[in-house]
Amino acid sequence: MRTPTAMIVGIVLGPCGLVLNLTSTLAPNWRDVKQIPRRPSDLVQHQGIWDICEETESTRQTQCNIGDSLEYFSQLPVQVAKGLMPASLATLILGLVVASLGVRCWTDTPHSLLAGLGGLLLFASGLLSLIAVSWYNHELYNLPAITDSTLQVGYCLVLGYLGSCLEIIGGISLTASFHRCCKERKLKKAATSYSYPPANKQVPAITMATASSVDSKDLEMHYRTPTPRSYTNSLDVLEDERASTHSYRSRLPCDSDL
C-alpha cells in the first residue's frame, strides 16, 4: 500500500520546521540595534533570547556575552520566548517520533491513529513557537534599547515564523489521518458484524413451487458462498486431462496431483 499523500506532506514539513525553529531558538539575532551613539557607525548589536553579541561589519569580528545593562532579558516577551521555544522543540521532536511510527513506510499498512496523534503534536508545537515569535515581534520596539539607536527585526523572527507555519501545515496534514482511521474502524466493524452460516447447517430442499416462484439468479446469489482468494485462479488445471481423447494418460504430475 502506498503511503497517503497527507502523511508524506506532514512527515516532510515537520523536520523542515524543526531545523528553522532550532536555528531561531539558538541564534542571537531576534533584534538588531544599529547606529549606537558614541560607537562606531558599522557596529551592530544582535540581541537574542539567550545572548547579546556585537559585530563590526567592516571587519566581521563578533564578540558575544555582552553585559545586559538595560535589563533586556528580564522583560516578559523575552522570558516567554525562553520558555515556549524549548517547549515547542520538545513537542515537535515527540510529534515526529509518533508520526514516524504511525506512517511506517516500511510496512504495508500505516497506523492512522498514531499518525493523527503525531499531527496534533506538530500542530501544538507550531502554535507554541508562533505565540513566542509573534509576542516578541509585537513588543520589539517597546523593549529596552539604547537611546537614539535604530531597531530592526532580526532573521530569527523570520525563521521562527516560517518554521511555525510549516509545523502547523504539517500537523493539519497529518491530522487528516483521523478520517482514515474512522473509515478503517467502520470497515472492521462491518466485517465482524457479518457472520457466515455454520458449516453443519443444511440447505433446505427446494420444492417445485419454490423454484417456480423464485428466480434462479436470486437463488444463486442467496446460497453462493464467498470463494477464498487461494481458489480464484481463472485457469483450469484439469482441462488437458478432460480434453484428452486418447486412452493414454500422461504420467507427468500436474497441479491436481501436487
Score class of each variant (00 low, 15 high):
residue 216 S to D: 11
residue 232 T to K: 12
residue 155 Y to A: 13
residue 230 S to W: 09
residue 60 R to K: 15
residue 151 L to K: 14
residue 241 E to S: 14
residue 51 D to Q: 07
residue 129 S to G: 09
residue 139 E to F: 13
residue 182 C to G: 13
residue 209 A to E: 14
residue 204 P to E: 07
residue 81 A to T: 04
residue 210 T to W: 10
residue 128 L to Q: 01
residue 184 E to Q: 12
residue 189 K to L: 12
residue 75 Q to K: 07
residue 137 N to K: 14
residue 192 T to H: 08
residue 14 G to I: 01
residue 83 G to P: 03
residue 107 T to S: 05
residue 67 G to T: 09
residue 35 Q to E: 14
residue 229 R to F: 11
residue 177 S to L: 05
residue 255 D to W: 08
residue 138 H to D: 11
residue 106 W to T: 11
residue 225 T to P: 00
residue 147 T to W: 12
residue 191 A to V: 06
residue 81 A to C: 07
residue 251 R to P: 05
residue 211 A to E: 04
residue 181 C to D: 13
residue 44 V to R: 00
residue 17 G to I: 00
residue 144 P to S: 03
residue 234 S to G: 06
residue 233 N to H: 04
residue 83 G to C: 04
residue 90 A to G: 11
residue 185 R to C: 09
residue 31 R to L: 07
residue 60 R to H: 14
residue 236 D to N: 11
residue 144 P to N: 03
residue 16 C to E: 04
residue 122 L to I: 03
residue 200 N to G: 06
residue 227 T to S: 08
residue 216 S to W: 10
residue 39 R to S: 13
residue 63 Q to H: 12
residue 228 P to R: 02
residue 29 N to M: 05
residue 18 L to V: 06
residue 173 S to H: 02
residue 70 L to H: 03
residue 72 Y to F: 13
residue 71 E to M: 05
residue 242 R to Q: 06
residue 54 E to L: 05
residue 44 V to S: 04
residue 15 P to A: 08
residue 227 T to L: 15
residue 119 G to L: 04
residue 134 S to H: 05
residue 154 G to Y: 02
residue 202 Q to V: 15
residue 129 S to M: 03
residue 198 P to F: 00
residue 75 Q to A: 10
residue 167 E to H: 04
residue 100 S to H: 08
residue 89 L to R: 00
residue 77 P to I: 02
residue 232 T to S: 14
residue 90 A to V: 15
residue 226 P to Y: 06
residue 248 Y to D: 09
